[in-house]
Design a protein around this nucleic acid. Structure first.
Lengths: 308, 308
DNA sequence: TTGAAAGCGTTACCAC
DNA sequence: GTGGTAACGCTTTCAA
């Protein structure tokens, strides 16, 4: 070791990789940018486990846009060799999975809508999570409930779309026994989706008692902007988010918590087991988000004055 | 190509790397977690340029904590070979630079307080930025001005510390010609720094006219929390942030914008030039942040009633 | 226990 | 131009 230090000797990872057949590189495919809360948490989680084992992450972004997808699935196996592939938060088509499988490496899904063709997956139970969130609103006595969301990508199903189904199921179930009035307010994708949601809520004939939000990134601007229009929570309406992402605690938002860092780390551990040739005892995990009660939800009392 | 497709032939990057002597891997060292706004933007910027050139990023986090540092600078050259090293947002000690230099690869600094020993750097002008921000507050007529910041790490100077110097310089300059009352409110590091800053502001004998914040991540919670204490901006006080990070636009925060994604991308382009053996025409760039006027600053009119 | 040799898949060079 | 060969630095195997 001292001789090595003297000579500035560095072991060559390239040579090790060549000889061993491993590349010590994994691919992480994500929809959109890594700069979103969810994506960077997943990345950090994966890296937290794999980095210390000597793996680097090769990041492929915007895989959910048509052009990138085509190019990616055409060139990727040829250009970039990796020991494993992680797919975060979007569905891949059967023929694309087939393309990936031909690289003969483990394929691990994180929040992918489907689990077929993956060697392992870990997902949040989006549908049950939003079902619970909606149920919470209903149990507080709210009657006029809306779900605000940004529309799904044309063809490509994202894990997040299951949340809308959870909302609808909860409302339909509640309708059996009581009188509630619910509605889905879907606004176009794009970076102004929060303003679009605000406009949609404000243009409702009667202002809702309760708002279920597809994600905190929509709920947080809504709370702040509705305030400027004179609507205050929980005095005038209840609102629940989904994610428990940045600033949710700062604005005291009641929300469903998920932990994408932990999911990334768990996915990475599954990956290491698969690379070691071990059998997974639970290849496909589903995690339930947790209701975090904070200050934006209150019982609806129809007889009470406007102050809480 | 068709034969290659038939046989599922993949070119071996490991072999290419071995033969060429390049590793097609760069190291990115950062203080703290990648999950912070600044760090993930830098990462994304570096990746946006380097990924398409075939490079992967090996991420080393928490380099600004003493234990990690020691371990890193002892083991890194031996364990991980890279074609270039990026250092983001913290100062490195002379002997550490020496360690890095022995790997004989380009070393590029992003927002590092010093530029010596780096082959290239790109930095935001933190001091001038906060000088301008403070000047803006002074020009609006504010008399009682505070600067809220979280304390610097014991030994390790971070680029962000220059902002405090800019604040002080601006105040001292203004004092020559007019009567202003300024103060630095420094609170301990930690994840509750925003609450600590809130407490510090509230415990001032007279509430300030204007608050200059070290960063938006401090300004945003302050605006929201001060509101709950009855202080509204810009009616009761002006506040200016620094960064223009997430939600700054949503809460309509006047701030100094910097673009860490662009800085990462620019650093990566410098890196590619250095790797190609080209001379850099401007090895060390300094970028001025831009004043973004929004809704949290107003002219102080001592005769006006409390409403704006 | 120690040492030598073969081979991983490229790239680069040289001879034809 | 075209084809053959050596070498990058490690790991593994086999022999001493």
């Amino acid at each position: 070791m001292s001789a090595a230090a003297k000579l500035d000797f560095n072991i060559s990872r390239s040579a090790t990789a060549l000889k061993s057949g491993q590349t010590f590189r994994v691919a992480l495919l994500m929809n959109q940018e890594i700069t979103s809360w969810f994506n960077v948490e997943v990345f950090a989680g994966v890296n937290s486990v794999l980095h210390k084992e000597g793996y680097d992450i090769s990041l492929f972004q915007h895989i959910d846009d048509a052009r990138t997808r085509t190019q990616f699935f055409r060139d990727m196996p040829v250009l970039r060799n990796v020991d494993a592939v992680f797919v975060a938060s979007f569905a891949i088509e059967p023929e694309e999975v087939e393309q990936l499988r031909r690289t003969r490496v483990p394929i691990i899904g994180i929040n992918t809508p489907n689990i077929e063709a993956f060697d392992a997956t870990i997902s949040i139970d989006d549908e049950k999570g939003m079902y619970r969130a909606t149920q919470h609103m209903i149990n507080l006595g709210h009657k006029r409930i809306v779900y605000t969301c940004s529309a799904a990508e044309e063809s490509l199903e994202s894990s997040i779309d299951a949340r809308g189904r959870g909302f609808i199921r909860a409302c339909e179930a509640a309708q059996q026994t009581r009188d509630i009035d619910w509605k889905v307010l879907s606004v176009p994708r794009g970076h102004d989706f929060a303003d679009a949601a605000l406009a949609a809520v404000l243009s409702e004939e009667t202002f809702p008692d309760a708002i279920c939000c597809q994600m905190d990134m929509m709920a947080i601007p809504l709370v702040l902007k509705l305030q400027r229009h004179g609507y205050r929570t929980p005095r005038d309406y209840s609102i629940i988010g989904f994610d428990d992402s940045s600033y949710a605690d700062t604005i005291d938002l009641t929300t469903m918590r998920q932990d994408p860092f932990a999911m990334g780390a768990a996915a990475a551990r599954k990956c290491l087991q698969l690379l070691a040739g071990e059998e997974l005892q639970e290849p496909h995990s589903k995690i339930e988000p947790k209701l975090i009660l904070r200050g934006t939800d209150a019982r609806l009392d129809p007889d009470a004055p406007l102050e809480r």
